[in-house]
Structures are given as structure tokens and as C-alpha cells.
Design a binder for these strands. Structure first.
Lengths: 205, 205
DNA sequence: GTAATCTGACAACGCCGATTACCGGATTGG
DNA sequence: CCAATCCGGTAATCGGCGTTGTCAGATTAC
């Protein structure tokens, strides 16, 4: 039966260990690299036993997938709340906000784009599927803004599916380059570049 | 001392085995996945002994890196020859050709973009460096076309560095999506989308 | 024809890391 | 205060795969 030990409930201790393992994964996957990271190293970094690891995750890949989902979900929430608070704003403001919030959310920790766009690529089929789902999610955001622009008469009436996917790729490419670059690229410039690119892409005839 | 066996020189037999190993790598890495592919499987697929493998490559990663370089180098040569034969053509023609030739070269075998943009990502530092070099190479192509456009007066005078990187990312994203999509996306539409995106990106004020 | 030589297949070695069994210790209810 | 219970860490096991040693057979020069 579950009872409290050392003043904290088992659930809470498990949750804390889980959180520490996620942090350890973020730290080691983005430095040692995913393939080279051993489960024992994750446990040492997290201050947790291998036993605990298997209580929380089925494998290293599971942990990576959860991190990938977490990073995207965090950015998603931030972007959505920012956009719903701008319901009546004009298209340019909305697009600027969408991109600024996204870029800021995902570059706040430089390890996030590294994990998202480098380490979590080509690991297994499940993570690839999750990647495709997130690309679709982001593409739908962009698509719906483009359709708003079209409805407002500042963009042509057409399908924006491929344009949206291409723009997601552009953002991904810039962020992947950003995290690899020495000296680092300026976040503002990247956000500005993407904004202009997107505006040019959807207002083109 | 080197002498001919079975009518062919040792160098030629080595070259053929090397070529078969590369083909086996392309086949297995894009189906089984890089991490899950065993060296013994590569050898079986290539009809070669494990001993031979180590005569040609130091590791699985070496083989992958060579494939990655090969795919890019092939596309590079095709694009460059196409562009040099269009020295006097107008900007739009050159850009259209650049993108069409590239997309055709890299989608001719659907396994190529899979290997390039999925399997060869985040494997180790060497391949990441090679990736950065190729992104730079492609970005310089795009940059120089943008500067041509600027010189011709159809695009503003500015730095096209980030724009070029973003466009490379857009192409990469579309091709990565292309190889993962069911039902498959149309290659023509992808090439057309990228062309319009690039023209919009460099002719924007 | 024969001996020297090279080639390539096979198999076994050895390492390394994932996974789990076990046990000592801490904690709490009575 | 004690016994029952649960928790967590350690260490041993197990399996798999990369790597290399060896040998049998094929080939060619003399």
C-alpha cells in the first residue's frame, strides 16, 4: 500500500525523479549525443538508480521522445495563448507575434533546438511520426494565418499547404544552423528573417 | 606483390566491393535505419565478407558519411554544370534551373533525401560538420544568384546570408516531408513551391 | 606440374552495456 | 520499541555485436 516516506508521497518522489531524468537527458543528449549516451550515465547525472529509470521509461528512446514532445508542446502553448489574445489584431501583427513567440520559446534554452532538430532526427519510427505530427501542427498555424490574410485581401486565395511546410522547414533550418554556429547568430535577426520571408511568401501574387 | 586474379586487378575488385557496400548502405540505412543496421547485414547485402568491410571503411559511420557526401556532390556537379551553361541567361531562368536540377537530382532516388535529411542527422560530430559545410555550399549558390538579381536591379542590395540559409532549410524541410509522405507529394509541385518562395524572398523590398 | 602466394569466408574471442535479482537499510504503524 | 513493509542501490548476469585470427582453396609464375 502506498504511504508517505520521508514526508513526501511516493508519487511526488517519482515525479521528481522523472523530472531529473528529463533534465539529465536534455543535458547529456545535447553534449555527449544521443547514441553515445548510456543509461547509467543518465542515472548518475540525475542522481537516480538504474532501477528508477526503468520505473519511468521503457528505454532511452522513450525519454528522448518525451523531451521532444515537451519542447514542442511548451512552444505550442505559448504561441496559442499569444495568438488568442490578439484575436482582433491585423495580419502582420499576428504573424510577427506568432514567429517571435515561437523563436523565443525554442531558443530560450539553446539545447532545445539542438535536441529537437538534430538529436531527435532519424532515431526510430515513433519519433519520426511525432516529428511529422508537429510539423503538421505548426504548418496548420501558418496556413490559418495565411488564410486570414487572404480573407483580409492582402494575400491571394490559394492553397497554402506546401508554403506552410516550406516555411516550417525554413524556421527549422535557421534554428538548426543557429545552435551549431560559432560565433552564435543573433536571435532577433533570425526572427526578423523568418518574418520577412513568411510575409513575402504569402503576399506574393 | 599485386597481381591480377580471375582476370581483374585487385584494385578493381576492391572498388567493386566498395561500390556494393555503398549500395548496401543506401538500401539498409533507409529501411532498417542507420542505428539498427548491423555491419554483418551490410556485408550480407553487399555479398562481401566482414573482413572486406574493414578494408574499405573504418566504421558504419564512415560509410554513412561517404554516402552523404556522395549524394550532395552528385547534385552539386549537376547544378553547377547546368548553371555554367546558362551564363548569360536572366535571373529567373537561372533560379528556376538551379532549383529544378537540384530537386530532380536529389529525388531521382527517393532513398537519397531519406538518407540525407533523416538518417545522417545527429549521428556524430564529423557528419554534422559535413552537413554544415554542404548547407554553406548551397547557401552560397543561392546567395550569389540573389546578388546577381540585385546587380540586375530586380532585387534590393542587401546581405542574403540568412535568407539563403532559410531557403536551404525550406528545401530540406519539403524534401524531408516528401520522402515521408503517404501518398507521395508531387515533385513538380515541390520544385514550383520552392521556386516561387525563393523569388518572393529575394525580390521582396 | 608444382610450389609459392594471395584471397576471402568463417568462427570465435572479447568487450560493453542493458536489464534484473537481490539485499541492506530506512520508515512507519501498532 | 519492535516488527512489518517498502524502497532504492549495487552488483552480477545475460546477450549481442564488433573485430580479428586462422585456414582452406584458388590462382599464377616458373
Amino acid at each position: 500500500m502506498a504511504r508517505a516516506y520521508a514526508g513526501v508521497s511516493p508519487e511526488q518522489r517519482r515525479a521528481e525523479r522523472r523530472a531529473r531524468l528529463l533534465q539529465a537527458g536534455l543535458a547529456l543528449f545535447t553534449t555527449t549525443g544521443f547514441a553515445a549516451t548510456k543509461i547509467s550515465e543518465l542515472c548518475t547525472e540525475a542522481g537516480v538508480s538504474t532501477r528508477n529509470f526503468y520505473e519511468e521509461f521503457g528505454s532511452k528512446e522513450d525519454l528522448l521522445r518525451e523531451l521532444h514532445d515537451l519542447i514542442n508542446a511548451t512552444a505550442f502553448t505559448e504561441v496559442r495563448t499569444a495568438l488568442t489574445s490578439l484575436e482582433t489584431a491585423d495580419v502582420r501583427t499576428r504573424i510577427t507575434t506568432l514567429l517571435d513567440v515561437f523563436v523565443r520559446a525554442v531558443t530560450a534554452d539553446p539545447r532545445a533546438p539542438r535536441l529537437n532538430y538534430v538529436e531527435a532526427v532519424g532515431v526510430n519510427a515513433e519519433i519520426e511520426q511525432q516529428h511529422v505530427r508537429w510539423v503538421n501542427t505548426w504548418a496548420e498555424f501558418i496556413e490559418s494565418e495565411a488564410l486570414r490574410a487572404a480573407a483580409a485581401g492582402v494575400a491571394p486565395q490559394r492553397s497554402y499547404r506546401l508554403t506552410a511546410i516550406a516555411l516550417v522547414g525554413a524556421i527549422t533550418g535557421l534554428l538548426r544552423e543557429w545552435q551549431a554556429h560559432e560565433p552564435p547568430l543573433a536571435v532577433d535577426e533570425i526572427a526578423a528573417e523568418i518574418r520577412e520571408l513568411m510575409l513575402a511568401a504569402i503576399t506574393r501574387p
